[in-house]
Nucleic acid binder design. Sequence first.
DNA 1: AAAATTAACGACCGGTCGGTCGGTTAATCC
DNA 2: GGATTAACCGACCGACCGGTCGTTAATTTT
Lengths: 210, 210
Amino acid sequence: MTIDGRIARGDRTRAAVLDRAVARATEDGLDGLSLGQLATDLGVSKSGLFAHWRSKEELQLATIEQAREQFLEHVVRPALKAPRGIRRLWSLHDHRIRFYEDRHLPGGCFFAKVQFEFSVRPGTVRDRLTEHFAMWSELVEGLAQQAARSGELRDETDTRQLAYELESFALSAVLLSRIKSPEPTYHYARRAARDRLRTLATDPDLLPEA
Amino acid sequence: MTIDGRIARGDRTRAAVLDRAVARATEDGLDGLSLGQLATDLGVSKSGLFAHWRSKEELQLATIEQAREQFLEHVVRPALKAPRGIRRLWSLHDHRIRFYEDRHLPGGCFFAKVQFEFSVRPGTVRDRLTEHFAMWSELVEGLAQQAARSGELRDETDTRQLAYELESFALSAVLLSRIKSPEPTYHYARRAARDRLRTLATDPDLLPEA
DNA sequence: AAAATTAACGACCGGTCGGTCGGTTAATCC
DNA sequence: GGATTAACCGACCGACCGGTCGTTAATTTT
């Protein structure tokens, strides 16, 4: 019952390749990824990559899963530590902006980038991205509904509408932080969400002040 | 002083190529554009394209200008017919959403697509896109300031913040209309902007109702 | 110690990419 | 009517693309 050193080695390179692939994809896109360049960057051979993934598309799909893991680890799981309700909703938005702010990825956000890249290009990659976004949407809308049911949101609140607006503020933070100056952008992204949540909250003091 | 038929012919093909390039770029991006495919689609030869643009980058830059023209014609100029102030601001947002809704371009929005594509890729293309976005930002913020100065927005209104939020709602409409169902998305994009403007308006009746 | 398994490699393939070059055709100018 | 000009084309180029294949080196199993 010892650890197989060969497999451990494979796992290590696989992880290294995927981490690099996620990062590069935020710059040049999932399709812009060239297997040759990726291999050279990592100091491995191109054919070595094919030992782990049988095609470029397979590697793209694996890259998506890796990006999802990163996002869960840095954004979702920490955010869920906040108390149920409107504070958890805010926490999710805040952690998300912080993740962009901290520049974990050179392009800011893997999913924003590749969603735009594949949103009108049918295929397996697009389908997987759509699934992931559906899950993410359910998470956000679920948290909003939780907050509504526990009486922390005004009765007339449209939780889907709210989810749309939060998504908007975060999504445009990714882009605008690269096109205009980053600091004001992140500030606007936070303030927009906080103001919106405060107008819908039955107890605005649950949220940070201006 | 008659019209030179040869030059007129050149202008016609140039316009046809650029229109097609704008449309295709919303699907595959400005870099995803292949000159060979583009030429084949239009029934011309690849080398014929090089007679009009000396490199791919030159064609990309020309494509950006063409997209700008389209956007001015379908969105900006019609929107500016609305009376100065908050109604003009709303009109700009509404025309923008309508432009996406009408599916003039297969990918929804040229600028959203290529901004994401080039936002972290230094070069002439990126620089031009940044310039264009700066002009667009000035337009929106200028309209907001106009509305504020004429007393149609509450005194405490942060016009830059408002511009950020409007941009967010429109930007995410492009993406979410492809990932989720389109109709609710456009509805959310309009309602978010209208609600926000109404809370900031000194006279909400200037804006359409729910 | 031999056999089996796994990661990784170098050489190579057909195809496509952006780009060049020497024409051809047709409209315009003198 | 001949020279000029502009649009456009077909053949071709080197570079790079995703992908295949036979092999080597290291580790584990028997």
